[in-house]
Every structure is written in structure tokens, then in C-alpha cells.
């Protein structure tokens, strides 16, 4: 399982979506850990990394960072939306996947869906099932998914 999880944070620093892929667990791991420490720590780390990158060099943008056990691929949109994909550290650049998730999943199922909010209050998450199934479809069909 080379791709571990996806986290989406909005411009108010709230975690509005999380999806974890775990071979062993049969239960659906969607929006389970949004309020937990993991999410907050992840956001904090990204926030600090962004600050450092900006301080070290203007016009800098964080793309990814890795540790021994995982690599975090990051995308921030002009509207303040932050996408984080946690994967195996050996995995190559996954920006294209994040772009695709933004363009085809988020825009189609959240933005264009009149019945889904775009400005999430604290605690609100993206509950749309088509959203999750589209993301799954994109991720699961990647060759790097099940190694």
C-alpha cells in the first residue's frame, strides 16, 4: 500500500476531509480522524514548512517533504485550500494526482453541487459519497497504489 491517506484543509485551518487507505481494515476510513491530533499536527507541520520556505526564498512553494516512513505531497490553491497526500517515501512526484483530485473531484462534487457548502464551518466535512468514490477511483487505479 504505497498511498496511505489524503487530507484536505480549508482556508480556516479546519480539516474538511480525510481518507485513509488501509488494506487490513474493512471499515470505511473517511472523515474519521478529522478532529484528532494527527490532523492538527499535520496542518501545523505544513504551516511551518510553508513559512520556512517563504522565509528562505521568496516565490517559494512547498511541494513535498519526506521522513523515514512517509512522504507528504502538498498542494495549495489560490483560494487557500490545502491538499496533503501521505505516501511511501519512495514514491515519485504526485502533484498530478492532487491536481486531478482538485479539478475533477472537488470542483465537480463540492463546488458545482449547490447542496454542498463551500465555506465550511468548524466541524463540517465533505460528506458527498460521489466525491469519495471518485477519489477512490483515481487513487486505486494508479500503478503505485498496491505495491
Amino acid at each position: 500500500m504505497a498511498i496511505y491517506s489524503l487530507w484536505i484543509f480549508d482556508r480556516h485551518s479546519n480539516c474538511i476531509y480525510s481518507r485513509e487507505w488501509d488494506n487490513k481494515s474493512k471499515s470505511s476510513l473517511v472523515n474519521v480522524n478529522n478532529a484528532k491530533d494527527t490532523a492538527k499536527l499535520l496542518f501545523g507541520t505544513i504551516f511551518s514548512m510553508k513559512n520556512i520556505s517563504q522565509n528562505l526564498s521568496k516565490q517559494n512553494k512547498l511541494k513535498s517533504f519526506s521522513t523515514l516512513r512517509f512522504k507528504c505531497h502538498f498542494k495549495e490553491t489560490g483560494s487557500g485550500l490545502k491538499f496533503c497526500l501521505l505516501t511511501d517515501p519512495e514514491l515519485e512526484d504526485m502533484q498530478f494526482l492532487l491536481d486531478e483530485i482538485y479539478t475533477s473531484c472537488y470542483v465537480n462534487h463540492v463546488v458545482k453541487n449547490a447542496l454542498s457548502p463551500v465555506d465550511f464551518r468548524a466541524g463540517q466535512v465533505i460528506g458527498s459519497e460521489p466525491f469519495t468514490s471518485d477519489i477512490d477511483r483515481l487513487v486505486v487505479t494508479l500503478p503505485s497504489f498496491s505495491t
Binding site: 512553494k61 490553491t77 489560490g78 483560494s79 485550500l81 491536481d99 482538485y102 479539478t103 472537488y106 470542483v107 463540492v110 463546488v111 458545482k112 463551500v118 465555506d119
Partner: peptide, 16 residues
Amino acid sequence: GLRLVEEFFAQTNLGR
């Protein structure tokens, strides 16, 4: 406008 701007960024890939 809140929604439209997301599609704008998704399609154009421009930054701020």
C-alpha cells in the same frame, strides 16, 4: 463567487 473561484484556480492553475 465563492464557488466560481475554485473552478477558476482548478482550470487555470494560476497562483495569487
